[in-house]
Simulated assay, not measured.
Amino acid sequence: MSEKNRSKIKWRFKSKDGLELFAHSFPSKNPPKAIICLTHGHGEHLERYKNLAAALNDADYSMIGFDQRGHGQSDGPRGHTPSYETLLDDIEAFLAEVDENYPDLPRILYGHSMGGNLALNYALRRKPKLLGVIATGPWIKLAFEPPAVKVFMGKTMDKIYPAFIQASGLETAALSRDLEVVRAYEEDSLVHDKISARLFVGMYESGLWALENADEFSLPLLLMHGSADRLTSADASREFAEKVGDKVKLKIWDGFYHEIHNEPEQADVFKTIINWLEKL
């Protein structure tokens, strides 16, 4: 890896439809064994994963992430996407940026929550050349079934006014048992609680699609979820893993909330991730 590539830490790149997206590299001090490519959850941004990046760096893995459109320091209306496929196109553009910075190194796609939904669907639909996939607390299904009338209204608005924005209603206390994590989230100026009809319907339907097609998942997969997650469904992750079969390592963390990487026992989570990476 050249010194030029080492120095590219924060930059912006263009999406397929011309939007500027913000990327951030967290390089390891030693030559990296592989690149962990991060896709974050809804309403948040990649800078919230510095603790994960530090643990990966200590194990000689570099991490690169990007703020999804409408999130963090990337452009676009907050909480909206023109289509679900556009989000997959953004991941494709991001992975091209990773290749430019770290040519010839293996890549692992890591997605949390909404990012977990996208990572699973990207692997299923685009058949990328990846060493593996990590999904934590993926939005395959929500931990609660949305009221039928809300789903109906979402689908109706998606057809007539897809950019219609509502508050997500996220229960911030359900993110982590660490109250400091919750406080920092609530005070973070880059966090938002907006979600459009198009984004909600796309995520909702693609989660169900991924579950129906999970038996076609062909890459090594580390799938982890907190058993006490009140935001996304741990049972859906169990069902997904059962359909994938031998290619998946499933870990349900007893009593953990949604952000398992931000729980008091995060060191154990990072150790599990690194042990899995070492066996690829």
Rank of each mutant, 00 (worst) to 15 (best):
M157D: 03
M157P: 10
D158R: 08
D158W: 07
K159G: 12
K159R: 14
I160H: 10
I160N: 11
Y161S: 09
P162F: 00
P162Q: 02
P162Y: 00
P162M: 03
A163P: 01
A163D: 01
A163V: 02
F164P: 03
F164S: 04
F164M: 04
I165Q: 05
I165A: 04
I165W: 04
A167N: 14
A167Q: 14
G169Q: 07
G169H: 07
G169K: 04
T172G: 06
T172F: 10
T172M: 09
A173N: 13
A173G: 13
A173P: 12
A173K: 11
A173C: 13
A173M: 12
A174N: 06
A174T: 04
A174S: 11
A174E: 08
L175C: 13
L175D: 09
L175G: 09
S176T: 01
S176R: 00
R177Y: 07
R177T: 04
R177A: 05
R177W: 04
R177V: 03
D178H: 06
D178R: 03
D178P: 10
D178C: 09
L179S: 14
L179E: 14
E180Y: 11
E180A: 13
E180I: 11
E180T: 12
E180W: 10
V181E: 05
V182I: 02
V182N: 02
R183Y: 08
R183E: 07
R183P: 09
R183C: 08
A184V: 11
A184I: 08
A184T: 08
A184C: 12
Y185T: 00
Y185N: 00
Y185R: 00
E186Q: 12
D188L: 15
D188E: 15
D188Y: 15
D188N: 15
D188V: 15
D188T: 15
D188G: 15
S189H: 12
S189N: 13
L190T: 00
L190I: 03
L190S: 00
V191L: 03
V191E: 03
V191R: 02
H192N: 03
H192P: 03
H192T: 01
H192D: 01
H192K: 00
D193R: 05
D193A: 06
D193P: 06
D193N: 08
D193Q: 05
K194N: 07
K194L: 06
I195Y: 02
I195M: 06
S196C: 04
S196K: 02
